[in-house]
């Protein structure tokens, strides 16, 4: 080891696995960069942090972060994280996955974890397509966008993810693009420090599949598009933040509220019913 300066985010990374598999211009790496800085800022010790991922390009994050992490089966990242969060209430559980994994295959887990207000942070990398499997239509592919399974343009309405998360009961909902790196880092710090189910949508470019098929240029072109067509509107009503194909987008922090978590409700109810004989669960030692 020489005394050459090290990249400040390397503490969080398994550098022996670098260079990673993400394509040139992919936005997932940038979001991981922000995530590493957010952990520093939120001052979370690495042994209290668990990262859970599903399947897909974004699912590889669990393999690249140097904390306790788990790469689950397709769509079951939140299901696994629910158990992890309940058995270790003092730990910070982060689900880092993609739009297809979280909202198509794992959609049911997402809505119920948000409804129960399980203490976890869900970071959804929304690149509008299934990257790893070949660019198929996801629930977030905008109308008229081309994908490998919709060569004439997508004709299904897409999810409005912040609205879905708010309706299901998430306590913190924000959306940023990977152009807004500083804001994204700040939002991740806030989401990590929030007790309860926090949800963060990160719009990211997918130059290899989504943009090539839609002739939208490379990664830089998409980030420039995010820059030119995004409006920051904190506290905006989430029903107005839906995305269309190459439409203007509203970014910002939409929801920041407080609700009792699943564990709070469980302990309160059991205490009410069982009285002094109830011993609150404090996690597996």
């Amino acid at each position: 080891m020489s005394d050459a300066p090290r990249n400040p985010v390397e503490k969080l990374l398994r550098t022996e696995r670098m260079p990673h598999i993400w394509c040139p211009g992919c936005g997932i790496g940038t979001s991981v960069n922000c995530f590493a800085r957010a952990i520093e800022q939120a001052d979370i010790p690495y042994d209290k942090l668990h990262v859970v991922s599903g399947i897909g390009c974004s699912g590889r994050v669990a393999g690249y972060v140097n904390v306790d992490s788990f790469h689950t089966t397709h769509g079951r990242a939140i299901a696994f994280a629910t158990g992890l969060s309940l058995s270790r209430p003092s730990a910070k559980v982060v689900v880092y996955s993609g739009d297809g994994d979280l909202f198509a295959i794992g959609g049911n887990h997402f809505i119920h974890a948000a409804r129960r207000n399980i203490d976890m942070t869900v970071i959804c990398i929304n690149n509008f397509t299934y990257g790893m499997t070949g660019g198929q239509v996801t629930p977030t592919t905008p109308l008229t966008a081309k994908a490998s399974t919709s060569p004439y343009g997508n004709f299904e309405d897409s999810f409005n993810l912040p609205n879905l998360a708010e309706a299901c009961g998430a306590v913190y909902v924000a959306r940023w693009t990977i152009y807004h790196v500083r804001q994204l880092t700040r939002a991740m710090t806030k989401a990590l420090s929030t007790k309860g189910f926090s949800f963060l949508e990160v719009l990211a470019p997918c130059p290899t599949l989504y943009q090539r098929r839609n002739k939208l240029g490379d990664g830089v072109a998409m980030v420039q598009f995010f820059k030119d067509h995004s409006t920051i509107k904190n506290g905006a009503s989430t029903s107005e933040v839906g995305l269309g194909f190459q439409s203007d987008m509203i970014v910002g922090e939409f929801v920041d509220r407080q609700r009792p978590t699943f564990m709070d409700n469980y302990n309160a109810r059991m205490k009410e019913v069982l009285g002094d004989s109830f011993v609150p669960f404090e996690g597996i030692k």
């Binding site: 990249n7 985010v9 936005g27 940038t30 960069n33 800085r37 990977i178």
Partner: peptide, 16 residues
């Protein structure tokens, strides 16, 4: 300012 380091998706560059 380390803006390059913040944007770099490959953790390859950083400013000091």
């Amino acid at each position: 300012c380390d803006m390059c380091g913040l944007y770099c998706p490959d953790f390859a560059i950083f400013g000091v």
